[in-house]
């Protein structure tokens, strides 16, 4: 059975688009982290710092904060492409009916929003940096508690990616060890809910565990995911360029 030449071409083109979307991800990450760093929030102020200190942070260089947060919010928007690529790849594993891919899309959207809103709060704070210090502190706390504390959409996202990787028996898209890594990362990320309990120490939102360790684990997971998707997309592009004779296993999942 050989596929229609047009279909192959169509699939080839969408795989190229997938690859382009995937490569937007490093750009997105550079924007997000560059922005946060420019705004002087890497690492964040301690949650135990006084409202006056928070006000000082906003008053010190509001323009840097504004510019940084614009970059970060732009980065979050660009990261949407990456979320979509994960889903299209998951769809190849799941086939036409793909609840996990849709859940990933949803959860990815929500975690993306939980990334944008905190930056917006900081932006709102910088808009009138001469506000009452308590209000600025409220914005600052909301920003970081929302960013790190509301972790469950991200946990859900990573878990369904892991579940999908377990389903991929042929290991064509996701290797099996990656499924275990997802399970582990989802497990570890749960510990971030502890930020609600502490204003100091390792579990506070600037602490060594809640901030540094969790972020590093998440960053490593993102990197691994990026590399795995890059490999599988490249592989399917390579397969499709030589598909004329044996294109049978590219089923309808790509264009469904």
């Amino acid at each position: 059975m050989s596929l229609d030449k047009n279909v192959v071409e169509f699939q080839y083109r969408s795989a190229r688009v997938e690859l382009a979307c995937l490569w937007s991800f490093p750009v997105a990450m550079a924007l997000v982290f560059g922005g946060v760093w420019l705004a002087g929030m890497f690492p964040p102020l301690s949650p135990s710092s006084s409202s006056m200190e928070v006000q000082e942070f906003f008053r010190d260089s509001p323009n840097k904060i504004r510019a940084g947060m614009i970059l970060s919010m732009l980065g979050c928007a660009v990261a949407g492409l990456f979320v979509a690529v994960i889903s299209t790849q998951m769809k190849r594993v799941e086939g036409a009916f793909s609840p996990l891919a849709y859940t990933q899309l949803l959860a990815g959207l929500i975690s993306n929003m939980l990334g944008v809103l905190p930056f917006a709060f900081i932006q709102i704070g910088a808009f009138r940096a001469d506000r009452m210090p308590e209000i600025l502190q409220l914005l600052y706390d909301s920003s970081w508690l929302m960013n790190l504390g509301i972790i469950f959409p991200t946990v859900l996202e990573i878990s369904v990616i892991g579940a999908c990787a377990f389903m991929d028996r042929s290991e064509r898209i996701f290797p099996r060890w990656y499924a275990w890594i997802c399970t582990w990362v989802a497990f570890v990320m749960c510990a971030d809910v502890l930020v609600f309990f502490f204003k100091a120490g390792p579990f506070a939102f600037n602490g060594i565990i809640s901030f540094w360790l969790e972020l590093s684990v998440f960053a490593i997971w993102l990197l691994i995911t990026f590399l795995i998707l890059r490999k599988s997309i490249n592989k399917s592009i390579a397969e499709m360029s030589t598909i004329d004779s044996s294109g049978a296993h590219f089923s309808s999942s790509v264009i469904s």
Binding site: R176, W177, A179, W180, I181, W184, V188, V217
Partner: peptide, 19 residues
């Protein structure tokens, strides 16, 4: 066990070691 479970186990022990 399968190889993957050891990623999980060593990863977990690493987190505990950090703790």
């Amino acid at each position: 066990g399968e190889l993957g479970i050891w990623f999980f186990i060593f990863g977990d022990m690493l987190m505990f070691a950090a703790l």
